[in-house]
Design a protein around this nucleic acid. Structure first.
Lengths: 240, 240
DNA sequence: GGTCGGTTATTTGTATGACGTATTACTTTT
DNA sequence: AAAAGTAATACGTCATACAAATAACCGACC
């Protein structure tokens, strides 16, 4: 379901944006370097200046580039990038396959945010949130039974947990979180009995949020994270 | 030190970008609405299409707009915006003066992230990080003694705490965090003896990180947050 | 010799006019 | 009434030209 290349007939700007974004995330242009001049990029891509300029502007808006007259467009230090930007996350995960540092940072982020999000969800989830969460859990059960995509169902469940607390900044992190969750769930789904084993704790988390039990929700979330970290570290130590 | 209007001779695109960003954050264009067409915006701003288009592209890159052929450019739902984008944070804080929901969400975010960041900092800060942190604390002491800007010094200190853990995603949140910290510190700095009162707990946090005592760092951070929340809630209840 | 000041070259910024293209909405036909 | 065709519309792209900022160079003067 992932589309490695840009949509077949996206606009030219989108194609250039995607290519440059990938190039930078893959390190083909390094921080501090200057990109080729607009005219040179025009020649390379065989597009007009407008197309190149608007792509560059988009990357600058994401904090990846700093464009200055007479000097050119500089690649910014990754600390300046909008790391929660969905495009940047996509490019980074596709290019370097989520490098070791990013994996560690994302695992830490999850451990910091998800239990707190579960707490908030238990305290504040609306009836609709609770229904959606239960529906997402049911979809996971179906997936385990062979009906549907397990990884997608698990991702949807965790995204809902982040949303249900009603905190806009917590919800915003779901794209970044998905990057590490996906890796984790793919490992689980490849283990014989992996998905089935993870179901009970998801059920516990779902029930705790439904019943408004913040402490139980936080505990359940932490157990899931312990399991996931165990799986991921195993894979990382093997040089995955 | 805050510049309410765009820099006097910024490029035209930057002026338009800034104006449109402000307009959207202030609710003068609501989610789901379509912006005026490019030609109409040209007339309003008295700039050429290129200027308008590049400004719109930048906003689209930040997730605020969705531009479609034949239909126009739609204002996206705030859930789609890159809420951690520095520009968006600036526009939101300047336009609505940090509304109640945003304040609540930022306070929660701080309570979730900062104690964990303090933990990480205690565990992993480099010698340079520790020196910088101590220097920032010393600057706060000077500010309390009348030498310098207390709010700026306090902001710098907390930014360093977020950075010292070495987690790129945690560090990235410092701009959002500053939005709520600034409000908090301004209250403190207006209270007689407020800054002086807050110094000892900052010292404790600084020392805990220097000594690698993660639990103490987390505790100190939480105490500071309790104090800040108390101040902020007091102000909010007064309809601030 | 070194510093100051002006000149030049390079790179992005802006303007204009024209045409391409996707998509909605309307109209016509069956 | 449904389907097919058509027209209108708003963004997408191109080519060219010139403006403006600024880094780098060079010469004059102290």
């Amino acid at each position: 379901m992932i589309r490695p290349t840009p949509a077949p007939r996206a606009t030219f700007q989108e194609q250039v944006l995607d290519q440059l974004g990938r190039d930078i995330c893959a390190g083909r242009y390094r921080p501090g370097e200057v990109l080729p001049s607009e005219t040179e990029l025009c020649e390379r891509f065989h597009f007009s200046r407008i197309v190149i300029r608007e792509a560059v502007k988009s990357l600058a808006a994401k904090g990846m580039l700093d464009v200055r007259r007479k000097v050119g467009t500089l690649v910014q230090d990754p600390a300046q990038w909008n790391l929660f930007d969905p495009d940047i996350i996509t490019w980074r995960t596709q290019s370097s396959g989520v490098d070791r540092t990013m994996s560690r940072d994302l695992m830490e982020l999850r451990r910091i945010v998800e239990p707190a999000a579960a707490r908030l969800a238990a305290q504040r989830a609306t009836p609709e949130d609770r229904r959606n969460l239960r529906a997402a859990y049911d979809a996971m059960v179906c997936a385990v039974a062979g009906e549907g995509d397990y990884v997608a169902a698990d991702l949807a469940f965790h995204t809902l947990v982040l949303s249900a607390g009603g905190n806009q900044f917590v919800r915003q992190m779901h794209v970044a979180m998905n990057a590490i969750l996906r890796g984790s769930f793919e490992i689980v789904s490849q283990k014989p009995g992996g998905p089935a084993f993870s179901l009970p704790m998801h059920e516990a988390l779902c029930r705790a949020i439904e019943q408004g039990d913040a402490a139980a929700a936080e505990r359940a979330s932490l157990v899931l994270i312990d399991q996931a970290d165990h799986d991921l570290l195993e894979r990382l130590d093997l040089g995955g």
